[in-house]
Simulated scan of single mutants.
Amino acid sequence: MAEPISLEDAKRQLRVLSTDEDAFITSAIVDARGWIENYTGLVLTRREVVEVLPCFGAQLSTWPIASIDAVTYYDTDGQEVVLQEAEYFAQIARRPAYLTAGGWPTVRDGSTIEVTMTAGFATPDAVSAFSPNLMRAMRVLVAGYFRDREGGKVAQDAEEFAKARLRNFRRWRV
């Protein structure tokens, strides 16, 4: 899984020439990606994601989605059931994504629906093409985490900058 920002790009941004800080910079890249994913609900690197829904017909918070790989639930007898692809339609081209069907099966009381999907941008270039603000926020977060290793004021300022840049991508819940 390629991170949206490479170690070499981050080192250029930070003006680091040696390899002494490579492990920490790599960690800062992963932390920045995770922060952005948590804040926006966007998946920046292509991977398998499992989302648990409270019921059929609920919106998916994960995006972008390349494919829905499995939809499972427990029926009224407590048996795990995997829906066949022909039993639902996945609207994944825009956000929010969701699954629809002519009629949903009855689930066991208190049960949830698990949707396993391949999600995320295919390449770092795809992230940048979607929004340069994502990449800018990620660079600022990496720099903030690098310069303020204990998570103080510099890291907080970087996160506030990222929030301002990414607010439009956030999925608000009511």
Rank of each mutant, 00 (worst) to 15 (best):
P4A: 12
P4W: 10
L7A: 11
D9I: 02
Q13G: 02
L14Y: 13
R15N: 08
V16T: 00
E21Y: 15
D22M: 00
D22E: 01
A23I: 06
I25M: 07
T26Y: 12
I29K: 09
I29E: 08
V30M: 14
A32C: 00
R33L: 04
W35L: 02
W35M: 00
E37A: 01
R47T: 13
V49N: 07
V52F: 11
F56A: 05
A58P: 11
L60P: 10
L60D: 07
W63A: 15
P64D: 06
P64Y: 01
I65W: 05
T72F: 02
Y73I: 03
Y74N: 14
D77S: 14
G78D: 15
G78T: 15
Q79K: 03
L83V: 02
Q84D: 15
I92W: 00
A97N: 04
Y98G: 00
A101L: 11
D109V: 04
S111C: 12
T112Q: 13
T118L: 05
A119F: 08
F121P: 05
A122Q: 09
T123I: 01
D125A: 15
S128M: 09
S128K: 14
A129E: 07
A129K: 08
S131Q: 06
S131H: 05
N133V: 00
M135Y: 10
M135G: 06
A137G: 15
A137H: 09
G144S: 10
Y145S: 02
F146N: 04
R149M: 03
E150M: 14
G152V: 04
G152Q: 03
V154E: 13
E159Y: 06
A162V: 02
K163Q: 07
A164S: 13
L166M: 02
R171D: 13
W172F: 08
V174S: 03
